[in-house]
């Protein structure tokens, strides 16, 4: 019986996928081209950017914290990678992606240190890290769009296709699989949820909770940096505040995917569904060519509806 139950995914995880299907069906009634392979493949490609960010955010939110530095870690890594390629030096250009990812991990460690050692609420600490990154970037670039360009590899990672599937989507899925394994099969995964449930009890059980927190934030930093590198490849450049529009959809995708903002409970699979849902929602709203104002209103209303659906369903059971 238990084994049988395990085969059926939790309904929380299914909700965003059902929502995505409903979007496709209702959307295709108005615009039949939505069912086209090209359109859907393009959505998967665009979803990969938000998807990578949301994976990192899920790890941090499972921990019971939040990372508000996503936007400028993304922008920072995009600026670093394009600037290195822009130097024209073949070695620096080769190293641009690893260096950008190390940058992401480094900022993640700074985030984690503030939260785990200084015990500053993550919401404030990552916010101030974000504003410092903004400040550094303004000093270095003079407030203009940084010079530089994406390398061929970055462009290929972001835009090429392998047998019809966008490479960016495949990367996103590989990272997803790696993180699912990390959460399900390693002790780190169990510590992560248990810190989210009760940090004190986890520490008392002999787990070094600060290392868990720092590791989680650095994974999130790497994920944001990957998003930045891919986005720079997609746009073939980096620009100031390219990450700003991603912060709120990222958190929304995680929460729609059934991960509790209080930590401890949630899943990577749900987040992937949440990302697909939000990407498709945004895309359909823009295909329908309605104004920014209505997009914002509909976006807010649909998210409220989904959240209400989830929480009221729990209340009944």
């Amino acid at each position: 019986m238990n084994n049988f139950k395990r085969l059926i995914p939790d309904i929380d995880v299914l909700v965003p996928y059902i929502g995505t299907l409903l979007l496709i069906i209702t959307g295709s009634v108005i615009y039949p081209q939505i069912l086209g392979v090209d359109y859907l493949a393009q959505q998967l490609q665009i979803a990969a950017f938000l998807g990578l960010l949301a994976l990192g955010a899920t790890i941090v939110i499972l921990l019971g914290h939040i990372d508000l530095s996503i936007a400028w870690v993304l922008t920072g890594s995009a600026i670093i990678s394009t600037a290195l390629v822009g130097t024209g030096d073949p070695i620096l250009s080769m190293l641009s992606i690893p260096i950008a990812l190390i940058f992401g991990a480094g900022i993640g460690i700074i985030n984690g240190l503030g939260v785990a050692v200084l015990r500053i609420p993550s919401m404030v600490w990552t916010l101030s890290v974000n504003s410092m990154l903004l400040g550094i970037s303004v000093v270095l670039t003079g407030g203009f769009n940084p010079k530089g360009e994406a390398s061929d590899i970055m462009v290929a990672l972001a835009t090429s296709q392998i047998s019809g599937l966008p490479l960016a989507f495949i990367i996103w899925m590989l990272v997803t699989a790696a993180l699912v394994l990390l959460l399900k099969k390693t002790s780190f995964g169990r510590y992560l949820s248990s810190v989210g449930y009760n940090e004190k009890a986890t520490l008392l059980s002999g787990v070094s909770t600060p290392s868990v927190i720092i590791a989680a934030f650095s994974i999130a930093g790497i994920c944001s940096a990957m998003g930045g590198v891919l986005l720079a490849g997609y746009a073939n450049q980096a620009y100031q505040s390219m990450g700003d529009p991603f912060l709120l959809p990222t958190i929304a995708a995680v929460v729609i995917g059934g991960t509790s903002i209080l930590g401890g409970r949630g899943s990577i699979a749900g987040t992937v569904g949440g990302v697909l849902f939000i990407t498709l929602l945004n895309s359909i709203l823009s295909v329908m060519q309605i104004s920014d104002a209505w997009r914002s209103i509909i976006f807010g209303l649909i998210i409220i509806t989904m959240l209400l659906f989830q929480s009221l369903r729990k209340k009944r059971t």
Binding site: I251, S260, I261, R295, S296, I297, F299, G300, L307, S311
Partner: peptide, 26 residues
Amino acid sequence: LVVFGRIQPIVATLATGSLFLGIALL
């Protein structure tokens, strides 16, 4: 939304923020 909908304030206000901003843009 927080009291009767039992949604965490941070996500509830994130969503309503989008709603209010949309009306302002309108």
